[in-house]
């Protein structure tokens, strides 16, 4: 326990906790809608776009974050824009992101061959994150971005929920379903770009899908599920960071994903318990 508390003496651990918490809250909130709208595959595609965005920025010698945010937000909005009612077809998504990844491979090889100092490690940290390498400035940016995401979710939450549950009725009642779909995927893009820096492009889907999937299994009430989703994401991040501090050979992004997966797996036990309880009382 003291060993676990002692880790806060290190500034890089504090930065990781600040950034990790902010990213987890944003991903948990947005992830709830991603799962509710059946757009997990879209989130998956955006995470791969983030790879290419970051690698392109590296290849051209720009700050990786510029590439990340530009690519995920633009592609997210484009996917929503081309699709019927703001939800893209999965074959289209699959074709586009396979090609985008192909571009990413090209940028990676350009980066590796053109810069003598560059090596495969850069690609690996884009893919799997480097949360312990974040500076105080990164952590502050992450917190600001997350605050923005929370405000945005608070603003569009109600109509988005309506449109997600029943888009026909929502459209009939005058909710701008299509615009909401585009705005929402832009928001997912922001979260994807932010989360790439912490857990890596390939693992951010976990932060979107696992807490939200778990929350949706535990409760049917939207606002409780929304907060539960953010709570589980934060708990998984803290648990993962602590575990990777105590077990130095375990990379933090693996630990975070493992905790989140375990929470999701545990929720499969819950409904059965409830159901057998209610049938026993009848």
């Amino acid at each position: 326990m003291t060993a676990a508390l002692g880790m806060f003496a290190h500034p890089f651990v504090r930065n990781a906790f600040v950034a990790g918490t902010a990213i987890a809250v944003a991903a948990g909130l947005v992830g709830y809608f991603v799962v509710l709208r059946g757009q997990v595959f879209t989130g998956d595609a955006l995470s791969h776009v983030a790879v290419t965005g970051a690698l392109a920025a590296l290849a051209f010698g720009v700050d990786a974050r510029a590439g990340l945010f530009a690519s995920t937000i633009v592609v997210g909005m484009a996917m929503a824009g081309f699709a019927r009612r703001g939800r893209a077809d999965d074959v289209v998504i699959g074709s586009v992101f396979a090609w985008v990844l192909g571009l990413g491979v090209l940028f990676l090889s350009v980066y590796i061959t053109s810069r003598s100092t560059g090596n495969g490690a850069a690609g690996v940290s884009v893919l799997f994150g480097s949360i312990l390498g974040l500076s105080a400035g990164h952590a502050r940016t992450a917190a600001l971005v997350a605050a923005g995401v929370v405000v945005a979710v608070a603003l569009i939450g109600r109509p988005l929920l309506f449109a997600s549950v029943d888009d026909d009725v929502a459209a009939a009642r005058g909710v701008p379903v299509r615009a909401l779909g585009i705005a929402f995927l832009a928001l997912v893009g922001v979260v994807a770009a932010e989360a790439t820096q912490a857990v890596g492009a390939l693992l951010l889907l976990e932060l979107l899908a696992a807490p939200a999937g778990a929350a949706l299994r535990l409760t049917a009430r939207p606002y409780i599920a929304l907060s539960l989703s953010a709570g589980i994401a934060v708990a998984a991040t803290w648990g993962g960071l602590t575990a990777s501090y105590l077990l130095p050979r375990v990379p933090p992004s693996f630990a975070i994903v493992a905790v989140a997966s375990a929470v999701y797996a545990l929720t499969f036990l819950v409904p059965r318990v409830r159901r057998s309880g209610s049938s026993a009382s009848m």
């Binding site: 799962v35 509710l36 709208r37 059946g38 757009q39 997990v40 595959f41 879209t42 989130g43 998956d44 699709a83 939800r87 893209a88 077809d89 999965d90 998504i93 690996v124 893919l127 799997f128 997600s164 549950v165 890596g200 390939l202 693992l203 951010l204 889907l205 976990e206 979107l208 899908a209 696992a210 939200a212 999937g213 949706l216 299994r217 050979r249 375990v250 990379p251 992004s253 693996f254 994903v257 493992a258 989140a260 997966s261 999701y264």
Partner: peptide, 30 residues
């Protein structure tokens, strides 16, 4: 997890399997 579908619990499950698998790969590499 078809995109036109309603909220599908299954797609969240597939997403979790996928991210966990990649994370395991990263662990093995480390």
């Amino acid at each position: 997890g078809g995109a036109g579908g309603r909220y599908s619990e299954e797609s969240a499950g597939i997403g979790v399997v996928q991210a966990f698998a990649l994370a395991c790969g990263f662990l093995f590499v480390s």
